[in-house]
């Protein structure tokens, strides 16, 4: 799913953005003149065509969103009560729920390590796969393959791979004389294990980088070569600046995605309880447990909104900082 959405957006991105100023220019006239019958009819048809989307947005996104905001100030439990309790849920979250902090720590840990690693990894692999050698298509397919597999099957596969004494990972480590850790059974190693699993699926990001790398004009490299630039300098001074829009896009989407990590921990820990010493109790898992194990929907809604704020702050920072390092060929977007 995730990777599909990304592709969609990439396809949209390179569309030349001709700024259509026509409506702006006509504005003064529009105010005086009544729109023609044809225009009204076309507008109505327009609305009819997007009606499914509007209904979906209002009914399935905005409605529930607002509902959860209201709910977060109540003791709503889905079936019997919904009393207004002010900021109690928020106060409890920050003062009386030790697992809230555990889950926040685990999630931030995961974001801080997995996002940069998958981004750098994606760029490096794309760089390798951007070479002109025989059979490159097959390499690309192989690297991309894990990205199209998804969900529970992969988690089970990795549970086998990470098995301390019989798993493939530790077997390979043993060849090099390394005594591998117990991975999912050792609280120190559970999160690194998960991050490693995520790295395996970096094909999605890789594909984006590969696409934009192939769009970098050849002339630039030729010019640089004439000036005597080597491969490394070409990468630093040409490739990297030219792919910054995608790096930026990848950073924003994967940060948001990483904050929402849930399935992995739910599937890979016993009873979905967050693993040894709660080391895989991620924010969304704790929220889910509150909502559906003990029916404290009010509290879970409050948690959802705090996560929303956290993610929004991160995204805001990304956008602010992006002005300093993201380069758009077509000018300022």
């Amino acid at each position: 799913m995730e990777s599909l959405q990304r592709e969609d957006r990439v396809e949209q991105r390179p569309l030349p953005l001709k700024k259509i100023e026509t409506t702006k220019n006509k504005k003064p006239n529009n105010k005086k003149r009544k729109p023609s019958k044809l225009a009204v009819r076309e507008n109505i048809w327009g609305y009819i065509f997007i009606a499914p989307w509007i209904i979906g947005l209002l009914g399935l996104t905005l409605g529930p969103l607002l509902f959860s905001l209201v709910t977060s100030f109540t003791d709503y439990n889905i079936t019997s009560q919904m009393n207004f309790i002010g900021f109690d849920n928020y106060i409890k979250m920050f003062t009386a729920d030790p697992l809230f902090w555990t889950s926040l720590y685990n999630t931030v840990y995961f974001v801080i390590f997995s996002v940069p690693l998958t981004t750098v990894g994606g760029i490096l692999v794309a760089l390798l796969l951007n070479q002109k050698i025989r059979g490159i298509k097959y390499f690309r397919t192989i690297i991309y393959l894990p990205a199209i597999l998804s969900g529970v099957a992969i988690y089970f596969l990795w549970m086998q791979l990470l098995s301390p004494s019989t798993g493939l990972v530790n077997t390979v480590l043993a060849w090099f004389g390394i005594d591998g850790p117990a991975w999912l059974f050792d609280p120190e190693w559970t999160k690194p294990a998960l991050i490693m699993m995520k790295l395996w699926g970096l094909g999605g990001g890789m594909l984006l980088y590969l696409a934009i790398m192939q769009n970098v004009p050849k002339e630039m490299y030729e010019a640089a070569e004439l000036d005597g630039a080597g491969g490394f300098r070409k990468f630093i001074h040409i490739t990297l600046p030219m792919i910054t829009p995608i790096i930026f896009f990848d950073l924003v989407t994967s940060t948001i995605g990483a904050f929402q990590i849930f399935q992995e921990a739910y599937v890979m820990t016993e009873n979905g309880d967050g693993g040894p010493s709660s080391s895989l109790l991620f924010y969304n898992l704790h929220m889910w447990n509150n909502a559906f194990e003990i029916f404290d929907m009010g509290y879970a809604s409050a948690m959802a909104w705090i996560l929303f704020l956290i993610v929004m702050v991160f995204t805001f920072i990304h956008f602010k900082v992006s002005k300093r390092w993201v380069y758009y060929e077509s000018g300022d977007e």
Binding site: P98, L99, T102, P187, D273, G274, P276, S277, S278, L281, N289, N290, E293, I294, D296
Partner: peptide, 13 residues
């Protein structure tokens, strides 16, 4: 209602 969630991590520790 959620006491086991609070107890288990401590037992693990």
């Amino acid at each position: 209602p959620d006491y086991t969630d609070l107890v288990n991590p401590n037992i693990d520790d």
